[in-house]
Amino acid sequence: MIIEGARQADKSTLATRLAGDHAVVVNLDDEQTRLAAVANQVGFVAQAGPRRASRW
């Protein structure tokens, strides 16, 4: 899931609440995190490990 919007609009809070305990929430505002994601997209996603699908 991607949540975009203005700064300080509670996007991280929303993502954490929607994702629950079975997800990894990543904030790409952190420069090193963003650089890692850009450098190796597949590896970046794979590092989170297997996840199960959630139904809302």
Rank of each mutant, 00 (worst) to 15 (best):
M1T: 04
M1S: 11
I2T: 15
I3R: 14
E4D: 04
E4H: 05
G5Y: 14
A6N: 13
A6F: 07
A6S: 11
R7T: 02
R7P: 00
Q8G: 02
Q8V: 01
A9V: 00
A9Q: 07
A9W: 01
A9L: 09
D10V: 05
K11N: 05
K11T: 00
K11V: 00
S12L: 05
S12F: 04
S12T: 00
T13I: 02
T13G: 14
L14P: 01
L14F: 15
L14A: 06
A15T: 01
A15I: 01
A15D: 04
T16C: 09
T16I: 13
R17A: 13
R17E: 10
L18Y: 07
L18G: 05
A19Y: 09
A19L: 10
A19W: 09
A19H: 09
G20S: 12
G20K: 14
G20A: 13
H22C: 01
H22R: 05
H22V: 00
H22S: 02
A23F: 06
V24I: 13
V24E: 15
V24Y: 12
V24F: 11
V25D: 00
V25W: 00
V25C: 04
V26Q: 03
V26L: 05
V26D: 02
N27M: 11
N27A: 13
L28I: 10
D29P: 02
D29H: 11
D29M: 12
D29T: 11
D29V: 12
D30W: 02
E31R: 09
E31S: 06
E31Q: 06
E31G: 02
E31A: 08
T33N: 03
T33W: 02
R34H: 07
R34M: 08
R34T: 03
R34I: 04
R34Q: 05
L35A: 13
A36I: 03
A36C: 09
A37T: 00
A37R: 00
V38F: 04
A39W: 03
N40I: 00
Q41I: 02
V42K: 12
V42C: 07
V42L: 11
G43F: 08
G43A: 06
F44K: 03
F44H: 06
F44Q: 02
F44C: 03
F44Y: 10
V45P: 01
A46N: 07
A46K: 14
A46F: 01
Q47V: 10
Q47T: 11
Q47G: 12
A48C: 14
A48P: 08
G49M: 04
P50D: 11
R51M: 07
S54R: 15
S54V: 15
R55V: 05
R55E: 06
W56A: 08
W56P: 03
